[in-house]
């Protein structure tokens, strides 16, 4: 729409900084459009499939009504799912605390330790939960043990990052007071840092628990235990009425636990 010629936009002179801004904006837009075109071509985006009503119709027919009578076989896997989430949150929550303290700039005892823990945190956060699940399932074998380990790492990644940010914004006067009265590093952490970050830390752990309940429902897709194992069997054998039943079950439990956890967090903060 806007033609930029010799520092003139639409024939009107504009200050050079604005010209540069517009050129930059145009380049950025072109880049984004290029990225989008590249993605669309790579994916093979097409609207044709939506016109293929028969396929959609068949899926709906196969998925509804849900296989209500399938529920007795879902109770135990669903409890297992919740158990995986609890253990992952517990292990991960405990492991996250020391890492968070080391990775908080204002509290960390030494530069190299700060740098190291910060990078460990960043690398842990790059990997999605199901990647950890695949790796652990491959290392220790299929089952919920692999799932709890995956969620442990995932929890460490989430909670340590958030808690270290909270630890960086605490009131340092208390820390100084402990140090001035002869406290060593561990004592300053114990008496000034932990009491100040504790409420936030607990609310982060609860938040991680919500994420973990969600994540634990699909861990079974890669053999890491829980209701996802049942889901995978039904999915690969195209029992979509059962798949829908499982999804509804997951849906109900995720929402219920989220409500509980959110209520607990509200009481905390």
């Amino acid at each position: 729409m806007n033609s930029i010629v010799n520092g003139m936009v639409n024939g009107r002179p504009v200050p050079p900084s604005r010209v540069r801004g517009r050129v930059l904006a145009a380049v950025a837009l072109l880049l984004l459009a290029g990225l989008t075109a590249w993605s669309a071509a790579g994916i093979g985006v097409t609207l044709e499939v939506f016109l293929n009503a028969s396929r959609i119709g068949r899926l709906v027919e196969e998925s509804f009504p849900p296989a209500w009578n399938f529920w007795p076989r879902l109770v135990k896997p669903l409890l297992e799912t919740v158990q995986i989430a609890i253990l992952g949150t517990l292990f991960g929550g405990i492991a996250a605390l020391p890492l968070a303290v080391l990775a908080a700039r204002t509290v960390s005892p030494s530069r190299p330790l700060y740098w190291l823990s910060r990078n460990v945190m960043n690398v842990l956060r790059t990997m999605p939960d199901l990647f950890w699940a695949m790796l652990f399932a491959s290392a220790v074998g299929f089952g919920p043990f692999a799932g709890s380990l995956a969620l442990t790492v995932f929890t460490v990644a989430v909670v340590s990052k958030l808690t270290s940010e909270s630890a960086e914004s605490i009131d340092l006067k208390l820390t100084e007071a402990v140090r001035a009265s002869g406290g060593n590093w561990l004592e300053t952490v114990w008496f000034s840092v932990l009491p100040q970050v504790l409420p936030q830390y607990v609310s982060y752990v609860l938040y991680a628990f919500e994420l973990n309940v969600r994540a634990s429902t699909v861990l079974g897709l890669v053999g890491a235990g829980g209701i996802g194992m049942v889901l995978n069997t039904q999915r690969t054998t195209f029992q979509y009425a059962r798949v829908t039943m499982i999804v509804l079950f997951i849906f109900a439990v995720v929402l219920a636990i989220e409500q509980l956890s959110a209520a607990a967090r509200r009481r905390l903060v």
Binding site: V49, N52, R55, I56, R58, L59, S63, L130, R214, A215, T217, V218, L221, L231, R235, F238, Y240, V243, V247, I250, F251, V254, L255, E258
Partner: peptide
């Protein structure tokens, strides 16, 4: 409330 991967399970057959 529905994770992406569950949505994908429904989109694949379509």
């Amino acid at each position: 409330a529905v994770p992406e991967i569950l949505l994908a399970i429904y989109f694949v057959p379509v």
